[in-house]
Design a binder for these strands. Structure first.
Lengths: 220, 220
DNA sequence: ACCATATCTAATGTATACATATATGTCAAG
DNA sequence: CTTGACATATATGTATACATTAGATATGGT
């Protein structure tokens, strides 16, 4: 990945800024400002913003700009209800189509998740979580389903980033129940039990949502 | 939608060209060429292509360009298997959340479908079909699900346009089984039977796929 | 004839100048 | 004090010129 171009650089850089809590929901991301701060022209920045909008990570008002999507309890319900079903499908499909290599990859992930060398930074956790969810999406063997997973994953992460405890306080991640839930999904995939894999994934996502739920009450 | 800008115009225009089979799988879509033929500069065209790539309609090679993904029996399977589940979800959701007005709208559609005044042109059929599927998507009450429905609907229509009998020969549309299947879905929604609505929609889409299936064999 | 290497070309990648629309603020009328 | 028309600033939308590079073609040594 040494030869990434400015568009790709801008894309990851902007994503990094968002994950770094540099913006709050509703904030606009100005092309000019980003271009200056990244030392680029507006062109690649604009392209990157377009991708982020297409992927659902940002929203856009015509002739106004891109902004961090506004959050509401109702929106969260829609997002997570859909994510539950979409990723449930992906996990079930992965249980049927994942190769042995794919499953090794997932097992390596949950091993690192449960027994990390050293403490996991927030960025590490994001990386692992992303690899897990998008990995399974990819192993579903359906490129369109993978695409939807990617979209709804990022969209729901707006909530996770801003309301999940782990991203606000310093908690020992490996002690949370998330790694265990991940492990059980992978086990079901390894056993080629598609129905169980789907249901465990749905449960995992619903569990994440319910953890956020109380913190979202005030949004209604 | 009178005030759409050039980026949106380019987006729909390019989509139209693809659905019109103006390119064959593997063909590159050149920015310069499209810009000239649409009477625009490369900038909005490039943006539109970026969206289409982000949405999975096109693929892209760095520094080379965007091209039509391979059409194949396997791809059709992926598309329709996903569409079945996505639109199934939407129909089930619509059975719970559609307003009485929404249901009136759907009933008017199936009435026009079963008893058209005069013969229905291919474009009429497309229009009705679009209104039915995207209508239900909208009545699901989930804007993200609606977005996915819209996407997979158009993507699957690449196959429908070129392999469905109705679009190749002159058949009396109201005598096909499609209108009846539509009607039964609407009835289930009207009865607020979400599970049945979902299953009937899945059946309808699977039925469409199976009608195409034989004609797709040679693609493998 | 074959393969490696140099050259060329056409399309993408990037910067920049300019056009246009939205939001905000000002000011006068009610 | 509120309201509405109008001016203005600012950020997006668009066109265009230029830079870069992947792939095609030509070249030349074996």
């Amino acid at each position: 990945m040494a030869n990434e171009n400015f568009e790709e650089f801008a894309y990851t850089a902007i994503l990094g800024l968002i994950l770094d809590n540099r913006f709050k929901p509703g904030d606009f991301l100005f092309e000019t400002e980003l271009a200056n701060s990244l030392g680029l022209s507006r062109t690649p920045v604009r392209h990157a913003l377009g991708q982020l909008v297409a992927e659902g990570f940002l929203e856009k008002k015509k002739k106004k700009g891109c902004y961090i999507p506004d959050v509401s309890a109702q929106d969260a319900r829609q997002v997570f209800s859909l994510r539950e079903n979409i990723e449930g499908m992906a996990a079930a499909s992965a249980a049927r189509f994942a190769t042995d290599d794919d499953i090794c990859f997932l097992n390596a992930l949950i091993e690192k998740e449960a027994n990390p060398d050293g403490i996991l930074s927030k960025l590490d956790v994001l990386e692992i979580n992303k690899a897990f969810h998008l990995g399974i999406a990819g192993f579903s063997g359906n490129r369109y389903l993978e695409h939807y997973c990617r979209h709804i994953f990022w969209r729901s992460n707006v909530y996770v980033f801003f309301y999940d405890n782990y991203y606000r306080e310093n908690i020992d991640y490996s002690k949370l129940k998330t790694p265990d839930q991940h492990a059980r999904v992978v086990a079901a995939i390894e056993n080629r039990n598609d129905e169980k894999a789907g249901n465990l994934m749905k449960f995992h996502i619903r569990s994440t949502y319910e953890m956020l739920f109380m913190k979202l009450q005030h949004l209604d």
